[in-house]
Simulated scan of single mutants.
Amino acid sequence: MNYWLVKSEPVKYSWEKFNKDGRTFWDGVRNYQARNNLREMKEGDLVLFYHSNEGKEVVGIAKVVKEFYQDPTTEDTNWCVVDLSPVETLKKPVTLEQIKADERLKDIGLVRQGRLSVMSLKPEEFDRVIELGS
């Protein structure tokens, strides 16, 4: 199993809307590194859902339910999507400040590559964020 983090601005697509929908395809990725990460996602992988810009916090856990395919919002074959479903809301959101202050998360992609919208996580990074949100 692999672990990931995806970002969404809550005004564009919030965790609450995601839970209401029950499933979505993760579109709008227009960065090659983030796109390559989407291509690496496998069915069953777990994903942290991060509210960017407003909130700046991890709010829930999702899972990959369909591996990458052509992004239906564009005819450009460079871009792909994966399908995600919500799994669980964190008991308490984990803020970017908490993540930055945690010695065990000093190398997490969210801090090192803050603008990347889809990133891989080490198992211990995923576990630590979940621990902080419990």
Score class of each variant (00 low, 15 high):
residue 79 W to F: 03
residue 106 K to D: 05
residue 92 K to A: 15
residue 19 N to K: 15
residue 58 V to W: 12
residue 118 V to G: 02
residue 35 R to P: 14
residue 91 K to A: 14
residue 24 T to V: 11
residue 117 S to I: 04
residue 43 E to S: 08
residue 43 E to V: 15
residue 107 D to S: 15
residue 83 D to Q: 02
residue 124 E to M: 10
residue 47 V to K: 11
residue 110 L to E: 08
residue 82 V to F: 12
residue 45 D to G: 09
residue 20 K to F: 14
residue 28 G to H: 08
residue 99 I to F: 10
residue 5 L to W: 02
residue 120 S to G: 13
residue 22 G to S: 02
residue 5 L to I: 10
residue 108 I to H: 01
residue 114 G to F: 06
residue 37 N to V: 15
residue 25 F to Q: 07
residue 60 G to Q: 01
residue 96 L to K: 08
residue 68 F to D: 05
residue 32 Y to N: 01
residue 48 L to R: 00
residue 99 I to R: 01
residue 47 V to C: 06
residue 49 F to S: 04
residue 105 L to I: 11
residue 45 D to A: 12
residue 49 F to K: 00
residue 34 A to V: 13
residue 63 K to C: 11
residue 79 W to L: 11
residue 97 E to M: 14
residue 4 W to L: 08
residue 82 V to A: 05
residue 125 E to F: 13
residue 20 K to Q: 14
residue 63 K to M: 05
residue 12 K to Y: 09
residue 120 S to F: 10
residue 66 K to N: 11
residue 70 Q to A: 12
residue 58 V to M: 04
residue 66 K to G: 00
residue 26 W to I: 00
residue 100 K to L: 11
residue 69 Y to I: 06
residue 89 T to P: 09
residue 45 D to Y: 14
residue 86 P to M: 07
residue 125 E to C: 01
residue 16 E to V: 11
